[in-house]
């Protein structure tokens, strides 16, 4: 029996995209929340993501890398169709990456400028990522309705990042900033709830393939587990946030874990909608797959290296466990 390599690579790609969305999601969210914080708080917020943001972004490179390795043809089609949003996202990521370093070294209005670029770059990157998701689900169809849909997914992803960022800060900070983060988290949650609801309703309307997959009784009933679970996670986030605010709940990682669950469930729903396509209605993963010799070569390496990556990523999170301290470079 031979391995179904395209399927394995689809799973790997899915995992790295999910890892990217969750991990960079929280640091993009923290970047967006900078706009609502004062100077001292901003330093703490930046310190909470400082050791991680670079490695977090590497998951994006891995996701695109696997797309390129495993589905070279789809890589060209997708990135060609998303040309401008990709370029916009990259500009956003560039500004925020360098602003991160430069705001530390700048003084006066320069510092304000880099703070602003940090915020703006984070916003631009998360919005365009959501926008691209919207374009992708609808098979890059053109038309005003499709454009609106993509704007909606863009706005929803921003909400999601704010939620992740705020709950991350709940975990990583204390005192007044933590109280602020709890309030941000609640707003983020409402925003996400609204976004997820609207996107879930709109998706079956804009693409037939997705509609057929979800409205296929009796499978629909089993599928209803997904929205139910995500609703449950939302409720858990809300009440743990409220409890932390009132001092009746003390497990600080719960809201973040809840937010991650919401993302994971939404991601699973999406994966179900799209499978087995890499480009919806055009290319399945088997049509688009690269030659097995290439896939095998990468798979062996990945089997050795990925466990190592996970191990040292865990190590680095353990080193920086606990509350963020403002003193960077110490």
């Amino acid at each position: 029996m031979s391995l179904d390599l395209p399927l394995i690579f689809t799973a790997l790609m899915g995992i790295s995209i999910l890892a990217y969305v969750v991990l960079d999601g929280y640091d993009l969210g923290v970047g967006m929340l900078m706009a609502a914080a004062d100077d001292h708080e901003q330093n703490l917020m930046v310190a909470s993501i400082g050791p991680f943001w670079d490695a977090n972004e590497t998951w994006l490179v891995l996701g695109v890398g696997i797309l390129l390795v495993a589905f070279p043809v789809a890589h060209g089609i997708i990135l060609g169709a998303l040309y401008l949003p990709v370029a916009t996202m990259l500009v956003g990521l560039m500004f925020r990456g360098v602003a991160f370093e430069l705001r530390l070294k700048a003084l006066g209005w320069h510092r304000e400028l880099w703070n602003w670029l940090f915020w703006f770059g984070s916003f631009l990157a998360s919005f365009t990522q959501g926008f691209m998701l919207g374009r992708y689900i609808t098979g890059f169809e053109s038309g005003f309705g499709y454009f609106l849909f993509a704007m909606l997914t863009g706005a929803s992803l921003c909400g999601g990042c704010v939620l992740l960022g705020a709950t991350w800060l709940v975990l990583k900070t204390e005192g007044p900033l933590q109280r602020k983060a709890i309030a941000w988290g609640k707003w983020g949650l409402l925003w996400v709830a609204l976004g997820v609801a609207m996107v879930s309703l709109a998706t079956p309307l804009v693409t037939e393939t997705v509609r057929n997959k979800w409205f296929d009784f009796p499978r629909t009933i089993a599928l209803m587990l997904l929205p139910t679970a995500s609703f449950g996670a939302g409720i858990a986030v809300w009440f743990t946030l409220r409890g932390l605010g009132r001092g009746t709940w003390h497990v600080e990682w719960m809201p973040f874990a809840g937010a991650v669950s919401i993302f994971t469930i939404a991601f699973a729903g999406l994966a179900y909608s799209l499978f087995p396509y890499v480009v919806i209605d055009q290319l399945t993963i088997w049509d688009a797959a690269a030659h097995p010799s290439s896939l095998q070569f990468v798979l062996w390496g990945a089997l050795v290296v990925v466990p190592l990556i996970i191990a040292y990523t865990a190590f680095s999170h353990r080193v920086f466990w606990g509350k963020a301290r403002a003193g960077l470079y110490e």
Partner: peptide, 11 residues
Amino acid sequence: ATFLGVMLFGM
């Protein structure tokens, strides 16, 4: 990327 975090902020 991962060890850069330790190197910069972990002394």
